[in-house]
Simulated scan of single mutants.
Amino acid sequence: MTAATVHAFDFDGTLTCNDTFLEFIIYDKGMARFLWGFMVNSPWIVLMLLRLYPNWKAKERVFSHFYKGTPLDDFDRRCRKFGASKKSRIMRPAGLKCVTQALEAGQRVLVVSASIENWVRAFFTPHPGLTILGTQVEVAGGRLTGRFLTKNCYGQEKVRRVMQVLPQRDNYILVAYGDSRGDKELLDYADVRHYKPFREGK
């Protein structure tokens, strides 16, 4: 019996041309508020760049600055609006075609991203074979707390999330697509690896 094929795609930089964490905040809040928010949080960002402060904590602080207290329904509405507006502009056509072809062939597709799951989902048409695995946000009383519910979906956390969804590793062939240091562990875990695919001319 032939093993099933599972495709695991990184999102930012692999399926998109831009980092959507920054792109979403700029789109939703405007450039002036974006710059002010980053200036307020600049000490943590500088420490992160110097590797003296965890990446996920700096990211969570920035996210909390902009979205703590936001009703979940409103946040999801903003995410859907962002996806509808940006999909044709920032998605790599070859990457989107690869996702579509895999789903049409009846294969399982995972999109594994350090970006927030809510807006990553907004870039894809719901499909039973498609699973979005992103960083999840904490909600209390219908509002975002500003904290992350899960670990930042980066590095080894990407592998852990894939294993959580598909634990029977011997039952499938894993094809992974990535473009950065955050995808190294996922690419190493895969049977077939594609580094920086879907670039111009591919």
Rank of each mutant, 00 (worst) to 15 (best):
N41I: 03
R78C: 10
I26R: 14
H65A: 11
A190G: 08
R33C: 04
V162P: 00
R51K: 06
C17E: 15
R181G: 15
N18R: 04
T131S: 10
A8N: 03
G134C: 06
G146L: 12
K158F: 02
M1P: 05
L144Q: 01
E117N: 07
G201K: 13
H7W: 14
G95R: 02
L22M: 15
H7M: 14
R80S: 11
G30M: 12
T145Y: 10
V120R: 05
F82Q: 03
G95I: 04
G201V: 01
L35K: 12
F24N: 01
N171F: 07
N152D: 12
V139W: 02
V159P: 00
V165F: 06
I90E: 09
L103Y: 09
K68V: 02
A4Q: 13
I25W: 00
R51C: 08
V162S: 03
D76C: 13
H127F: 03
A4W: 06
F11G: 00
L166P: 00
H194T: 12
F124C: 05
E23I: 11
R121I: 04
M163D: 14
I90Y: 03
D76W: 02
K87F: 07
G69F: 02
G201N: 13
L149C: 07
V120T: 07
G83W: 02
A102P: 05
P71H: 14
T20V: 11
Q156G: 08
R89P: 00
F21T: 03
F11D: 00
A32F: 11
T125F: 00
A102R: 02
V120D: 02
N118R: 13
Y53W: 08
P54S: 07
N55Q: 12
M91S: 09
N55F: 06
G69N: 04
R89C: 03
G141E: 08
D191M: 11
H7Q: 12
F24R: 12
C98H: 10
E138P: 09
N118W: 01
P128Q: 09
D10V: 08
V139K: 07
V120L: 08
L52T: 14
G13T: 05
W56E: 07
K57W: 01
I25F: 08
K59R: 13
L52V: 09
C98Q: 04
E23L: 11
A3K: 15
W56M: 03
F82E: 02
G155C: 09
A114C: 08
R80N: 05
Q156P: 02
N118C: 08
I116C: 05
Y195P: 07
A58T: 04
I45F: 13
P128D: 12
W36A: 15
Y172I: 02
E200S: 08
K59P: 00
F21P: 00
V192M: 12
G37T: 13
R108A: 03
W119R: 05
F66H: 03
R161Q: 10
Y189K: 10
F123I: 08
A58S: 11
S42E: 10
D28T: 13
Y53M: 04
W44Y: 15
Y195K: 13
